[in-house]
Design a protein around this nucleic acid. Structure first.
Lengths: 203, 203, 203, 203
DNA sequence: AATGAATGAGCATTCATTCAT
DNA sequence: TATGAATGAATGCTCATTCAT
C-alpha cells in the first residue's frame, strides 16, 4: 500500500471532498469516520484528527456543497442582465439544476435540510439563503428576494419529495407573481410601489 | 416481569405513537426498533413483528404526523369562509403552527423531508401535499394551490433552518401575490381571494 | 389475499417444492420456516405443522432432489446399451449435467453434502449412492461401480469447488481407467484377485 | 475484569484457532463472531476488527485446516520414495486420516465443501487441490494427479456421508487403476508420462 | 502530529418456538 | 386441525471513541 504521505497539507481538503462523495452516494446517514476515511484513502485516525466530530465535518461539507446552485446563479448572464425576464431566468435555472444529476441536487438539499436537527449547521444554511438573496438584490428588494428563495425551495422540494416532475412554465408563472408587488399599478410601473415591498417590506 | 399482555389489539397503534415521541425527542436518527420498543414498553420483537422494517414504521409515523397541520387547515373556519382574506388566514395559521411547540413542527418537517432520501416515504409526502391542495381547492385553482403549498413550505423552512423568526406580515403579502394571477388586470383587479382565483390562468 | 384453502392435500408437497426453490436460490443456510412459508405462499404455522423440524423438511427435500442426476442416468439410452462406451457415456452425462443450470447442480450437491453434519440425512445420501450403483450394476461389478461413483463425485466437486471447468476428455479417460481392472492381462483374461472386480466389463 | 490485554500480537492467530475449534465442535453453521470471541476469550469487537466478515475468517480457517492432510502427504516417507507402491501408500494415508479423530476429518471436509456456496472460499479450495497435486507431481503426470485427488475425495466422501466404513483394499485397487494409463498396452508397455506411473504397481 | 489497534454499545433483522384460538 | 400473533435470543455488522505509541 503506497500511502506514506505524512505531511499532506491538502489532506483536510481531501477529506471534505470524500465526505461529499459519501454523502452524495449514501446520504448523510452514511457518513462516518470510517466511510469517509475509506473514500478519502486516508487512515481512520486521520479523519478524527482533522475533524473532532462529525458535525464539524458536516459544516465544512455543507459550506462546500452550497456553492452548487449558488454558482449557477452567480454565473448566469441572464440573471445579471436587468432587462431579462427574471422569473423566466430563475425558472430555467431551476430546471437546469433539477435536470442534472439527481444526486447533486439531493446532496445539497440534504445537507441544507440537515440544519433542521443540527443547530451547528444553521448559520451555514442561513449563509446560503443570504447569498442567493444577494444575487437577487440587484433585481428586486430584499423581502421579495426572501420570498423568491422560499418559493424556489418549496418548488424544488415538491419535485424531490414527491417524485414529481418539474414544470418550468408553472414555476415561471408563480415566480412572476411573487416578483410583482400586489399594489403594482396598471402600467406595470417601475417598480414596486407597495410600501410593503418597496422599502424592504417592513417586517 | 409485569408485562404479560399477549392480546393487545392496539399494540400497533401504540408503537406508532411511541415512534413519534422518540422522533420528536431525538430526531429520526434516534429511531430504532430498540428505542421505540422501550418507549412503547413492548418487547423488541413486537416492533419488528408489526413493522417489518424501519421504513414501514416511518411511513406509518409520517402518515400520522401529517395530520397535524392538515387538521389545523381543515378545521380553520377562516379558510372555509370564502369571504375571508385567504392569504391572511394562511399566514395566521402558519404563525400559530410555528408558534406552537417547536418539537411538533420540527417533527412533522423532519418526517416530511426524510422522503428526500427514502423513496418509501415519497408517496406519503405526496399525499400530504395533495391534501393541503384539496383544502385550498375551494378557494383557488390547483396550480395556484400547488404554489401556495410550495411557498408556505419554503417560508417555514427558512424559519426552521436559519433560526429566524416568522414574519406574518411578510408571509401574508407574499401569499397574496401568489394568489393573484398575473393576468389579473392592470388595476389590481377586483380584489381578491375567491373571485380572483376563479379564472386561474394557472399555467 | 386469496388464500382460503384449508384442506389442501398437496400442501405438504408444495412446501417441499418451495424448500427446494429456496435452497437453490439461497442455499441450505437460507432455509427457514419463514422463507419456505413465504415461497410456498402458505401460512408460517403451516410449515411447522407439516414439518416439526427443519431436518425433517430437509430429508424430504433431499429425497426429491436426488432424482435429478439419477433420472439422467436412468433415462440414458447409451447407458442401457451394453455395447456403448460406458466411460464415454458417463463423461457425457456429467458434462450435460454440469453444463445445465448451475443452481440445480449446486443444490443437489449441497443437499448431498449436508449429510456430513446431519446424520439424519445420511441414509438418504446412501440411497443415492446405491441408486447410481444399481444403474451401473448391469455394466460393471459393485466394487467398480462404487469407485465410479466416487470418481464422478470427486470430479464434479473439483469443478464446483474450484470454479474450474469440466474436461470431458479427461473425465472419460479416467473413467476408462477405473472401469478396466488392473490385472486385465494382454488377453483381457479374468486374472483378477479381488472378487469385487472379477467381471470387469471393461469399457 | 481480568482481561486487560491491549497489546496482543497473536490475537489474530488465536481467533483463527478458536474458529477451528468452534467449527469442529458445532460445524460451520455454529460459527459466529460471538461464538468465536467467546472461545478465544477476546472481546466481540476484536473478531470483527481482525476479520471484517465471517467469510474472511472462514478463509483463514480453511487455509489453516488445509494443512492437515497436506502435511500428512508431504511428510509421508512412502510417498516420497519413488520405489514404493503409490496407490498403496495413498490408500494407507487415507486410512490413517479417516481413522483418526472424526472431527478433524469432518472439519476439513466441511470447510472444503463450504466453497460450494461461498465463492470466497474457492480460491483456497483450489489451492488445496493444487497442493496435493504438487505432492503427487513427482510420481505421476498432472492429469492423473488430478484424477487421483478426485477419486480420493470421492472415496472419503462416501465414507463420511453414508456412515460407511473405509475399505483400504478397495481404495488401493481403484487408485491403482487410475494410476495406470489406458494406453498402456496389453503388455503393460511403457507409454505414459513419468516412470513412476509406467509400471503401476500391479496389485 | 498522526495513526493502528482495540473495544463495547448499538444497530436492523431473522429466527424457532410458544400460545391462544 | 391449523394458524396468526407474539416474543426473546441470536446474528452479522458498524460505529465513535479510547489508547499507546
Amino acid at each position: 500500500m503506497a500511502r506514506p504521505r505524512r505531511h499532506d497539507p491538502e489532506r483536510r481538503e481531501r477529506i471534505v471532498d470524500a465526505a461529499l462523495r459519501v454523502a452524495a452516494r449514501r446520504g448523510i446517514a452514511g457518513l462516518s469516520h470510517r466511510t469517509v476515511a475509506a473514500e478519502a484513502d486516508v487512515p481512520l485516525g486521520s479523519t478524527t484528527y482533522h475533524f473532532a466530530s462529525l458535525d464539524e465535518l458536516l459544516v465544512a461539507a455543507l459550506r462546500k456543497a452550497n456553492e452548487g446552485f449558488g454558482r449557477l446563479l452567480r454565473e448566469s448572464p441572464a440573471l445579471a442582465d436587468p432587462d431579462t425576464d427574471l422569473a423566466g431566468a430563475l425558472a430555467r435555472l431551476m430546471g437546469e439544476w433539477l435536470g442534472g444529476e439527481r444526486t447533486g441536487v439531493e446532496l445539497e438539499y440534504e445537507l441544507y435540510l440537515a440544519a433542521l436537527r443540527r443547530p451547528a449547521l444553521r448559520p451555514v444554511a442561513a449563509e446560503w439563503a443570504e447569498e442567493v438573496g444577494a444575487v437577487l438584490a440587484a433585481r428586486t428588494d430584499p423581502a421579495t428576494a426572501r420570498a423568491v428563495v422560499a418559493l424556489m425551495d418549496g418548488i424544488c422540494l415538491q419535485v424531490l419529495l414527491t417524485d414529481g416532475s418539474y414544470d418550468e412554465t408553472h414555476a415561471r408563472e408563480m415566480l412572476t407573481r411573487i416578483l410583482r408587488p400586489v399594489s403594482e399599478g396598471p402600467n406595470g410601473g417601475p417598480a414596486r410601489s407597495s410600501k410593503a415591498t418597496e422599502r424592504p417590506t417592513d417586517t
